[in-house]
Design a protein around this nucleic acid. Structure first.
Lengths: 343, 343
DNA sequence: CTGAAAGCGCTTACAG
DNA sequence: CTGAAAGCGCTTACAG
């Protein structure tokens, strides 16, 4: 690769002049500039961003740490972040943490050593104490799909509301015995969704019965197992709210294997709004999260922080929305509503 | 962030010594080393990789340019690449090209300016001429899911074989009138899959009839439209081989809307082996590509190139495999085989 | 308007 | 074993 020295030599000027011509900083004569540009073209010169970065302390790169890009919940988020970053001339370094705190920390360290201009931490499991250290570092950080009491940017969705809407929908449809397949007990989102489920039940004078709550792992396989457990109950539920779509799909598998009809015998509602949910049969009612938008907003937040220089921390909470599809409609309302929900 | 100077000052040695102690290069006294390490710890010093990179010309970062991370075909590949890269201390910069040549070129340029140590180009649409320029650059490059006549690494799957297997399977199942929903005419993989479809027909003394071939866009919506076209044919096919799973899922939608039973009235086979295909109803028979493995191999190829220093170009072609599921089984064989395919 | 110099944070010969 | 110096490829005051 040609360097700025080569260009300077070919154009017969100093490197300072080449630099000024290229960056439009400071004065440079018209004809000199043309000579420089001609040399740049001839040598196919591209400024080395590493060298630039060393001086400017800007790498034009963000880090994105998420649990697992092959989990269908995350690609949309990554795409949103990449689109917004790309629009502003930034690249994204993608890291998978597999929900492991140690991997998160390792990536966090590496990214800071690489001097990224900002880091987006998705669904972080890191504790508040470590987060507090992080938030004091020079690198702007935004938490995605997680909140914190600290002075740190965060973008999350109202999980309690989402779960409440899901459960209330099932109540409204007339289901009597609504079970819940919860996410991992340690996951904040799982706790919040459980709380929303409970809230809806209590508010509608239903009993909140722990027998009807069983824990899954946020994966398809866990949903299948959980559903099989529910099917062994003395009183089988007539509806199940699953804490995410993957588990709902797993539950659907279990029901199909057991020959139970959805939604005629058991209704199902998922959570997340992943694409998959739209294409299973019956189409899965779910709580849609604005994942793409969240990715965009995370980058915007970092960008703002960089340009303003000040750390005016924002805690943004978005509302998820209920998307009614086939898996949760009582037989009588099925025909007329399924067409509408198709749009 | 503390710099090497700060460490040197605190430890009462020169920066050279700190550097040597940290990198284990050259001699350094035991007690000196301890002093340095203590200072490193006290200041929580992390070497700036940008500065290191400027000297070593190594950024420990790869670029991954793929069409669209939110397309379910790519996350597995990205995960494979990231896992292997991470294992060797490398990070991955993720770029989306949306199948647009201009975006590919832009990202290629940016990545080279950022001095990445290697670039993985997935499903590139760039022409051979431009590729030839690229292949001469210092940055190791590997083509994924695309071949080239040039001296350049490539990892691809045998699309002709895959399509052949898919079509032959339908013939073996006794289907008579097998249509094909092809991918975009300009896409090499689409052309190869069409060729495989044709080969299987010809080999089994069937007529290759262009009326039965209709073009889609590799997306769900395109599959739906294509299927609707096929349903308007004077003689409706009894089986359809779709050039990818997304279009097959779209076709399935069209068939369900039209009240056509799959596979009883029309059989369906997809291509790619995306996760989604396993959870639609009926489960989609498909040609599975080793996407995760391809991501891993791409990184390994770059790693080899870096460590060996020589450009011993490899063209690796992997074989896809047929996964028989429910969507392509004749009614009579249905019952017994569906259980097996479930494993 | 232009060039020489200093410097970003590090590594790597080269003396000593 | 250790330090001073040069240098990676750039930018940015500072003279002129």
């Amino acid at each position: 690769m040609a360097t700025i020295k080569d260009v300077a030599k070919l154009a017969g000027v100093s490197v300072s002049t080449v630099s000024r011509a290229l960056n439009g900083s400071g004065y440079v004569d018209r004809t000199t500039e043309e000579r420089v540009m001609a040399a740049v073209k001839q040598l196919n010169y591209k400024p080395n961003q590493i060298a630039r970065g060393l001086i400017s302390k800007k790498t034009k790169t963000f880090g994105l740490i998420l649990p697992d890009i092959s989990n269908p919940f995350f690609p949309e988020m990554a795409r949103g972040a990449e689109d917004e970053a790309s629009k502003h001339g930034y690249n994204i370094i993608l890291c998978n943490s597999d929900w492991q705190i140690e991997k998160e920390k390792m990536h966090l360290n590496l990214l800071q050593q690489k001097c990224v201009d900002g880091i987006i931490l998705v669904g972080s499991r890191i504790n508040e104490q470590y987060l507090s250290v992080l938030s004091k570092s020079a690198t702007p950080i935004v938490l995605l799909d997680r909140t914190s009491a600290l002075d740190i940017h965060s973008i999350s969705t109202n999980n309690v509301l989402g779960a409440y809407l899901a459960t209330k929908h099932l109540i409204d449809q007339g289901y009597q015995n609504i079970a819940h397949i919860a996410g991992p007990a340690l996951s904040p989102s799982a706790q919040q969704r459980l709380a929303g489920y409970r809230k809806a039940l209590v508010e509608h004078h239903r009993v909140f019965d722990l027998v009807l709550v069983t824990e899954g792992d946020y994966r398809i396989a866990g949903g299948t197992l959980a559903m099989q457990r529910l099917l062994r109950l003395a009183t089988i539920p007539d509806a199940v709210f699953c804490a995410n779509d993957l588990m709902a799909i797993g539950a659907l598998e279990a029901l199909q294997q057991a020959g139970v009809k959805v939604p005629e015998e058991i209704a199902l509602v998922g959570y997340d709004g992943i694409n998959l949910a739209r294409y299973v049969n019956p189409k899965l009612t779910t709580i849609i999260q604005p994942t793409y938008q969240m990715g965009i907003m995370a980058v915007q937040l970092i960008l703002e922080t960089i340009s303003s220089g000040q750390k005016n921390f924002k805690s943004i909470e978005l509302d998820p929305i209920l998307e009614i599809r086939e898996s949760s409609l009582r037989r009588e309302t099925y025909a007329k509503t399924s067409c509408i929900s198709d749009r």
